[in-house]
C-alpha cells in the first residue's frame, strides 16, 4: 500500500505521482468508459501546472485521481500516490491514493492538498454565513482564527467591507466574491499543493485573470484544470494537454505555447479567438471512449496523419505523444521535439 521515497531529490521532490493510471467507469451493456488511459504524471514541489483539453478528455478524472476521490464504481489500474514532504534526506511513507483506507487518506490529504471547486455557489451551504464556512476551513485543520484575522484575509483578496461581509449568506455574494472566499478556504492551512477544477469558468474575463493571479499568489504548487488557455501565460510553469483520456503533450508552458509539438495542441491554440480573425475549426469529434484505442486517438482529426499513425498508440516521450513529432525530433540533430504545426501568433507567454 505504501512505499518509501526519499524527499529532497534533485529536480524537486514529487508531491503526487500517477504511474500508468487507467480509470474506467462502468457504462451501458457492460461497456466501460475509459476516462484515463496509461497516465503518467508527476507534480513536484513548487511546480505550477495547467491541465487543458476538450470536454470529456479526462481532465476532471485526472484531478479526482490526484485528490484520491475517484468514484468507488470506477475500475482503476496503475498507481496514484501522494508523497508527503519530509526533511531532506529523510524517508517518508507515500500514501496510495487508490487503495488506502479513507481514514489514512484523509489525515494526509487534508494536510497536503487544498481544493478549489468549479462552482463556488454549490460549495457553500446557503443557510450558513460565509464567515462560518471560512472558520470551518481553519477548524478542520485544528486551527482557530479570530474575526479580525479573517476579515484581514478577505481584505487581502479584495473583498470590500470584510467585517460586515463575513456575516452575510452566500446568496448575497457574487460568483467572483465567492470564488475568492473559496480560494481563501482552500489555502487556509497553507497546503503544499492546491488543485483547482475550472475555477474561472463562471467568471467574466477580467475577473478570471484576477482569480488565477490570486490562485498563483496563494499556492506553493498548483494544478489547475482550465479551458481558458489564453489566460495560462504567466500563470503556470508547465502545461499538460489531454486528449481522449491520454496525456498527449506535457512540456514547459513557454515552449508549448510558442511551439506546440503535438498537432492537437497546435489545433487547440489555433482555435483561440483573436480580434479580426475567425478561429480555426477542428473538424470532427473526439472518439468514443468505450473502445480500446488502437493507434493515435487524434489521427482521424489530424490533418497531418499518416497510415502509420493508426498502427500503434504513441507513447509520451520528450513530452509529446505523437509519432510525427518523435520522427521530427529524431531527424533534428540533438534537438527536442520541434514544432509540428505552429499556431499563428501563438499565445505569448
Amino acid at each position: 500500500m505504501t512505499a518509501p521515497v526519499t524527499a529532497g531529490e534533485a529536480g524537486g521532490a514529487p508531491l503526487v505521482r500517477l504511474d500508468g493510471l487507467d480509470v474506467v467507469y462502468p457504462g451501458r451493456r457492460g461497456r466501460g468508459v475509459w476516462a484515463l488511459r496509461q497516465v503518467d504524471l508527476q507534480i513536484g514541489a513548487g511546480e505550477r501546472v495547467a491541465v487543458v483539453g476538450e470536454s470529456g478528455s479526462g481532465k476532471t478524472t485526472l484531478l479526482r485521481a490526484l485528490l484520491g476521490v475517484l468514484p468507488p464504481r470506477a475500475r482503476v489500474g496503475g498507481g496514484a500516490v501522494l508523497c508527503p514532504p519530509g526533511e531532506p534526506g529523510r524517508e517518508v511513507a507515500t500514501v496510495d491514493l487508490v487503495g488506502a483506507p479513507e481514514r489514512r487518506l484523509r489525515a494526509v490529504r487534508g494536510r497536503l492538498v487544498g481544493y478549489v471547486p468549479q462552482n463556488p455557489q454549490a460549495a457553500f451551504d446557503p443557510l450558513r454565513s460565509v464567515g462560518h464556512h471560512l472558520r470551518e476551513a481553519w477548524a478542520a485543520h485544528g486551527r482557530s482564527i479570530t474575526d479580525r484575522e479573517l476579515a484581514a484575509e478577505l481584505e487581502a483578496v479584495g473583498i470590500a467591507e470584510p467585517a460586515r461581509a463575513l456575516g452575510q449568506r452566500p446568496a448575497t455574494w457574487s460568483g467572483g466574491m465567492l470564488q475568492r472566499a473559496a480560494i481563501v478556504a482552500a489555502t487556509a492551512h497553507e497546503p503544499p499543493l492546491v488543485l483547482a477544477d475550472e475555477p474561472t469558468s463562471a467568471l467574466d474575463r477580467p475577473l478570471a485573470r484576477t482569480m488565477l493571479d490570486l490562485l498563483r499568489r496563494r499556492s506553493l504548487s498548483l494544478v489547475v484544470v482550465t479551458h481558458d488557455l489564453d489566460l495560462v501565460p504567466g500563470l503556470v510553469d508547465r502545461v499538460v494537454v489531454m486528449y481522449a483520456g491520454r496525456i498527449v503533450e506535457d512540456r514547459p508552458a513557454a515552449d508549448l505555447l510558442r511551439h506546440p509539438a503535438h498537432p492537437y495542441t497546435a489545433a487547440l491554440l489555433r482555435s483561440l479567438p483573436r480580434p479580426g480573425r475567425l478561429p480555426d475549426d477542428l473538424p470532427g469529434d473526439p472518439p468514443p471512449l468505450t473502445e480500446p484505442d488502437e493507434g493515435c486517438a487524434f489521427a482521424p482529426r489530424c490533418s497531418r496523419a499518416e497510415p502509420g499513425c493508426r498502427d500503434g498508440v504513441p507513447v509520451l516521450a520528450g513530452g509529446v505523444a505523437c509519432l510525427l513529432a518523435h520522427r521530427q525530433g529524431a531527424d533534428a540533430p540533438g534537438g527536442p521535439p520541434d514544432k509540428v504545426d505552429p499556431a499563428p501568433e501563438a499565445v505569448a507567454p
Binding site: H227, S271, D280, D281
Partner: peptide
C-alpha cells in the same frame, strides 16, 4: 460559448 472548450467554441462561432 461560455460552457464550451476552445475547439467547440470555434465551431459555434463559425
Amino acid at each position: 460559448t461560455s460552457a464550451l472548450d476552445p475547439t467547440s467554441a470555434s465551431t459555434v462561432v463559425r
